[in-house]
Amino acid sequence: MGIKILSAGVAACLADVITFPLDTAKVRLQIQGECQTSSAIRYKGVLGTISTLARSEGPVKLYSGLPAGLQRQISFASLRIGLYDTVQEFFATGKESSLGSKISAGLTTGGVAVFIGQPTEVVKVRLQAQSHLHGLKPRYTGTYNAYRIIVTTEGLLGLWKGTTPNLMRNVIINCTELVTYDLMKTALVRNKILADDVPCHLLSALIAGFCTTILSSPVDVVKTRFVNSPPGQYTNVRDCAMTMFTKEGPTAFFKGLVPSFLRLASWNVIMFVCFEQLKRELMKSRQPVDCAT
């Protein structure tokens, strides 16, 4: 279990570093339209958003919030992915895990990880969303400054703002992502289509990323809007969702869908491939020690 948690944490951090600009583009597209007067810049498409951000605010802005993002992966992804197999075995009634035990494991590890990692999610989203253009003063100067200001102005519970939509989002993501990946990998190996190696892991991760993006997009947009909002803008999560629907229409719930898919798909591929390889190598390195003892 320790090897799986460590492997998941390292693989998730590596995937986050590589795909973080896509995540920043997704956040900017999701909050676009929330406040029409805050910026004259309109983002169009994934590449357009990334190039506009790099040109207008500097390339470093694409990685704004990365420290909080890495903290999120260490506290969140390591648990939800690393504990999945162990929890699945707990729910399994027979020798083989059923679909029900896989879903139950995804729900459990995803839910637990959200409550632990929510403060890092709040800080990450706010740093990605803030802009210094058009005379706007940044809300925060850095990661730890954001933690301090949120606690002093909104209270300690401010760090857990948006837990409900984030819980819904990550339960959907965790179940869809891990269960789909698990089922696809098992089917490919069992039917002898692919061996349990990199091509199998890559294809399974891509399919899992696509399914996860479609199902989680509406909740993801609401979560981003609510977490980024200043105190008093929305009374609750439902008010945030209704405001989006009445002002921007149902398509608002799918803003940033393309960068979300590109980010999730590429993140899944990098994370799962690295996770499987790192886990395998660490397991091998333990065997001589275990035999000797």
Score class of each variant (00 low, 15 high):
L99V: 08
G33A: 05
S78K: 08
L203G: 06
G249V: 00
G82T: 03
P218I: 05
A241L: 01
P250K: 09
F254T: 00
K4M: 07
I74G: 03
P250S: 09
Q277W: 13
F210E: 05
L206V: 15
A252L: 00
H134D: 12
M1K: 13
T164C: 06
A129L: 01
K26I: 08
D290H: 14
M283A: 15
G209R: 04
I31D: 07
R169Y: 15
D220A: 02
D182V: 01
V151G: 06
E276V: 02
M242G: 03
I172P: 05
D290L: 10
L62C: 07
S7K: 02
A187S: 13
S204Q: 04
F261L: 09
T93A: 10
F275L: 13
G33V: 03
R263A: 13
I3N: 04
G82E: 04
Y43M: 05
L70R: 07
M1Y: 14
L6D: 05
G162E: 06
D220R: 11
I74V: 12
R55G: 02
I103K: 02
H134L: 04
K192H: 10
A77P: 06
A77G: 04
K185Q: 09
A208V: 00
K161V: 01
L262T: 02
P230L: 07
V112N: 06
F210P: 00
Q30C: 12
S285F: 06
S260W: 11
P119L: 04
N174I: 01
N174M: 11
M271D: 10
P250A: 13
Y234C: 07
L257M: 02
L53C: 07
F20E: 12
P288W: 00
I31K: 05
L156W: 14
I50H: 10
T186C: 09
Q287V: 15
F91C: 03
V151Q: 10
T19H: 09
L178F: 08
N174H: 08
C240R: 03
L183G: 11
T251M: 15
V60K: 10
S229Y: 06
S98D: 00
S78M: 12
V17P: 05
L262R: 04
L257I: 12
L70A: 06
L156A: 13
Q36S: 10
L53V: 05
S75L: 13
K44E: 15
